[in-house]
Design a protein around this nucleic acid. Structure first.
Lengths: 115, 115
DNA sequence: GCGATAGTCAACCAAGTGGTTGAATGAAAT
DNA sequence: ATTTCATTCAACCACTTGGTTGACTATCGC
């Protein structure tokens, strides 16, 4: 993996590690929202919420279009997909593992049958 | 989402946000390794690497079996799957988005054809 | 038992995080 | 032109992080 790609994953996973930001992503999946709209549900200051948006933007998860004095945010699905792909690489692994566990549990009574 | 589940995702994503820990996961996917074996490739102290392992363990990504003086680490695939599932929830979204973009680009020349 | 080995723990440090407030910028409305 | 609104910026704070070192604990081999 290239240095740049790794750096990107650092930012993406870090951005996803905060529940406020995950909720922002969830809401942005339904519709584009301005910074104030994103900030509304939380008790923190607007500046605080704005920082969260910035983290999402720097991770590439969100794109912003400035229109007059409002900043409209939209989800960038490709970046989310890249984190997905990183984890997906291990999918075969956990399928195998869980299958093996399953087999082990089922086969316990007749363990020597295959030998 | 329950508070506990959210808390778990915090830890899992945070653990994944570090390249050293991602590499440890990659190596653990090939075979179980002891803490010293995990630490070997890095220039940091053993105590430093041990801290990384602890972060992975507390996130539930790694399980440890103490055997004598060595600690053998194995990947816990279920936890990795839970992070995967969180992101997968948005899969339909980015597929739709990318499809829409694709359609938009293809249809540009004959944009009024559908009306 | 004695020394080497595997690993953790505690204290420390520099840098980063998540939040605050108050001032600054720049567009909108009157 | 003035005010109001959306947002950022800068400085600050308490806490966490990723790393170090040195001391400690427990096991293994002789």
């Amino acid at each position: 993996m290239s240095e740049a790609q790794s750096e990107r994953l650092n930012h993406v996973f870090r951005a996803l590690a905060d529940p406020t930001r995950r909720e922002m992503i969830r809401r942005l999946a339904r519709q584009d929202l301005t910074v104030s709209e994103l900030a509304m549900p939380y008790q923190m200051s607007l500046a605080g919420a704005s920082k969260h948006v910035k983290v999402l933007e720097e991770a590439g998860l969100v794109r912003r279009t400035v229109r007059g004095r409002t900043h409209l945010c939209r989800l960038d699905p490709a970046t989310l997909a890249s984190a997905y792909e990183w984890i997906r690489f291990y999918e075969h692994f956990w399928n195998d593992q869980l299958d093996a566990l399953d087999r082990e549990l089922r086969d316990l009574p007749g363990e020597e049958s295959g030998l």
